[in-house]
């Protein structure tokens, strides 16, 4: 069995565990902690199920189909499409965060305002860090 599949299966078990913990600990832990457990479990479940389904599809492929898939991942046009889509998504997320920033400012929601501000800063910092890294590579 591939390492990736083992990690995905372990992640799935952990995700179910987190969900069950959130369910059974309801009332004994704070709502925020319960929500965090449930949210984390849900996100992990989504990632692991996607990975396992992807693995299953890949294992059923013929060698020719697998070669085609690998070529598609290496293909320079596909790589350019992925890069452009990622950059556009970055801008869209930034606009969305700015929208949330002003919304939390108008609604005077202190904790959410702080959270959105930190997220905007991190969003931009990660971009600058990666700009620097990629610039050094090229």
């Amino acid at each position: 069995m591939k390492k990736k599949t083992i990690f995905a299966a372990l992640g799935l078990v952990l995700a179910v565990g987190l969900g069950l913990a959130a369910f059974f600990l309801d009332g004994r832990i704070s709502d925020a902690a319960g929500g965090a457990l449930f949210g984390l479990g849900g996100a992990l479940l989504g990632i692991c199920v996607t990975a396992l389904i992807g693995d299953r599809i890949e294992s059923r492929m013929t060698p020719e189909e697998r070669r085609e898939l690998e070529r598609g991942e290496r293909d320079e046009r596909n790589a350019a499409i992925r890069d452009r889509a990622a950059l556009k998504s970055w801008y869209w997320t930034l606009y969305l965060l700015w929208g949330l920033f002003f919304l939390t400012l108008i609604l005077e929601r202190g904790p959410f305002f702080a959270l959105v501000t930190v997220t905007i800063v991190l969003h931009c910092v990660f971009y600058l860090i990666n700009l620097g890294r990629v610039a050094r590579e090229m």
């Binding site: 085609e68 070529r71 598609g72 290496r74 293909d75 320079e76 046009r77 596909n78 350019a80």
Partner: peptide, 15 residues
């Protein structure tokens, strides 16, 4: 070693 879609895009002048 590219996809057929890349060849199509090259021929159409889109890429």
């Amino acid at each position: 070693d590219v996809t057929r879609q890349t060849i199509i895009s090259l021929e159409n002048g889109r890429y």
